[in-house]
Design a protein around this nucleic acid. Structure first.
Length: 578
DNA sequence: GCCGTTTTCGGCCCGACTGTTTTCAGTCG
């Protein structure tokens, strides 16, 4: 059982306890624990094997949940969960995924109408049966039928890049109206999560009511879920939800904190405020007087809000309740988180020589336009047949051409490199005699993703021991929507990378985002450094660098820990292995 | 079920919108 499995079981338990009308704080404790487990970089199994008492350090895990975790990592099962599940028929809990339907109503539907799944619910709605139940009516049935339809055609979470593009289109539409003053993308998109569920947009407007009217009139809107004076929600035709909120200028900062989240982060700072005798909501920070009278003491900017709570301003990417609140109070937040403007070059780019769609020349020109000081051309090796990988003869010719282009190109350095396949047992797809001709060598797995943990780990470790390897590309091999990460002992790989001076890639290619944020943070803890590479196969993909930067920031990565923030000379020097 | 710069017991973030209701419970973020 990996961390995700365990977290999911806790979430299901929370759902079931909620339906059983258990103590809401007990329910919350399970959800909170699940969140914290999902944020861990190390498998609970490893942590437990090293020392069970280390589990006590995980926030939200106390005596009871710890013993449940131990049972799960030990036996792969949880008796308590299995027992609870017996009380619910298959498909019942799925109804919780319908918008507007929660634990209370779901229970009522079962108790009074015997509804056990979505199909039965749909039939009951169509027959008008729900109107018999107190608190439900015709409109409830209508809404539920809509929710069922939406659920069936619903797309999963969007990839970060996809969400960003949808949001940009909506922001552009809002700007056209001339009614909005400030417009900010918020929510998990602003925090840079690798996938985004709903889009959240925060605004100030000259006329709030007109602003809402205009928003729900967006051409991409399929239906309106809710529309009030300060908050509206719509469903896009593409199957995603967008929430828009309009606030006063004096509340914008507090609203931005609230709307950016994460929920866990918000809860923590609100608790902290409460202990100080303040109240924090989306309108500001309020001082509660002796008579219960409230006085607003901050709200216009995010900086003001955090300052009133005696905290440093927390960069949005860090707001996951992973220790950033404590760090912001102690003044120990990372001071130099990497930024897009720090990036001086892109060291993972493909060309038409293999499976890229841009010529080397086109990529060079695009990189110059971006103000980059250097790039590396890193095409595939022969093992990746589907990508037209190069053999010895071709790579040497390719090298010659790239070097010639470098000589006659001013304003940027073009490195010749390769993305060489890691074969069985960690052998590489080019001999050392070829690799030593390269300025930069990226090693990568493109096959045999399902090897067992030990074989896969040894394979990667061996590859990192090749003295010509500089970078380990997309270390987990996962594709967010289609392929699980390979079984890998990341700690051993990170330690080896640190030892050998190999940089771990944060690959920004849409489906990859690999390393992910949690792994970045763990890699740094173990002394390794990273490089952010776009793995571009066409010129437009060079722009995805920003998603790698945001991911690295989520992993608490500072500029000094990123190879391609270095000057050309320093970068070349850093590539030299001992 | 967790947790502690008042506490090992008694708290646990806070508000908007909806539908079915005459004042609020449920859901959501």
């Amino acid at each position: 059982m990996d961390n995700k499995d365990i977290a999911n079981i806790f979430l299901r338990i929370a759902d079931m306890l909620e339906i059983k009308n258990e103590n809401v704080f007990r329910v919350r404790a399970y959800r909170n624990a699940a969140q914290n487990i999902m944020a861990l970089a190390r498998p609970l199994k490893d942590i437990h094997e090293e020392d069970p008492s280390l589990l006590d350090n995980i926030p939200g895990i106390g005596k009871d949940l710890k013993s449940k975790i131990i049972e799960m990592v030990g036996t792969g099962e949880l008796g308590y969960y299995d027992d609870l599940m017996k009380e619910f028929s298959p498909g019942f809990l799925e109804m919780l995924n319908l918008g507007g339907l929660g634990p209370k109503k779901i229970k009522k539907l079962r108790d009074e109408l015997g509804i056990e799944n979505i199909d039965a619910l749909e039939k009951a709605c169509m027959k008008g049966k729900l109107a018999d139940i107190e608190g439900m009516g015709a409109r409830t049935e209508e809404k539920l039928l809509e929710a069922i339809e939406y659920f069936r055609k619903k797309q999963g979470r969007m990839l970060l890049q996809e969400a960003d593009e949808y949001a940009d289109e909506i922001v552009a539409y809002l700007k056209e109206s001339g009614n909005f003053k400030k417009i900010e993308k918020a929510g998990s998109l602003r925090r840079g999560r690798e996938t985004v569920g709903d889009l959240d947009i925060l605004t100030t407007a000259k006329d709030a009511e007109k602003a809402m009217e205009y928003f729900v009139g967006y051409f991409g809107v399929d239906s309106v879920i809710a529309q009030g004076p300060t908050k509206s929600s719509v469903l896009l035709k593409a199957g995603h939800q967008v929430d828009l909120r309009v606030v006063d200028d004096a509340s914008f900062g507090a609203a931005l904190v609230y709307f950016t989240g994460s929920q866990q982060h918000n809860i923590k700072i609100r608790k902290l405020a409460k202990n100080k005798g303040y109240k924090v909501n989306e309108y500001g920070v309020f001082l509660i007087g002796k008579t219960g009278k409230e006085r607003k003491i901050a709200g216009k900017t995010e900086q003001d809000v955090y300052k009133k709570l005696d905290m440093e301003w927390v960069p949005p990417e860090l707001r996951e309740d992973n220790g950033e609140v404590e760090a912001a109070r102690d003044g120990t937040l990372p001071q130099d988180l990497v930024q897009l403007k720090d990036i001086k070059g892109d060291l993972h780019i493909h060309s038409t020589e293999t499976d890229g769609r841009a010529t080397v020349q086109e990529s060079v020109e695009a990189a110059i336009r971006k103000g980059y000081k250097y790039i590396a051309i890193t095409d595939h090796s022969k093992h990746v047949k589907i990508a037209n990988g190069m053999d010895d003869k071709r790579i040497l010719k390719h090298t010659e051409r790239v070097r010639k282009l470098n000589q006659k190109t001013k304003g940027i350095e073009i490195l010749m490199g390769v993305e060489v396949d890691i074969l069985d047992e960690g052998k590489l797809d080019f001999s050392d005699s070829v690799l030593k001709e390269m300025d930069i060598v990226i090693a990568a797995v493109h096959s045999r993703f399902s090897l067992d943990l030990e074989t896969q780990t040894r394979r990667i470790l061996n590859a990192l021991d090749n003295k010509y390897v500089n970078i380990l590309a997309h270390p987990s091999g996962r594709l967010i929507t289609t392929r699980k990460p390979i079984s890998l002992d990341f700690d051993r790989v990170f330690k080896k990378a640190a030892e050998n001076g190999v940089f771990l890639e944060v690959n920004t290619h849409g489906e990859r985002i690999d390393l992910n944020a949690a792994n970045c943070r763990r890699a740094l803890e173990l002394g390794a450094k990273v490089v952010i590479g776009t793995d571009s196969h066409e010129v437009e993909q060079l722009d995805y660098m920003k998603y790698g930067v945001i991911t690295a920031r989520r992993g608490w990565v500072s500029r000094k820990d990123v190879l391609n923030t270095y000057s050309f000379d320093k970068m070349v020097k850093a590539l030299k292995r001992a």
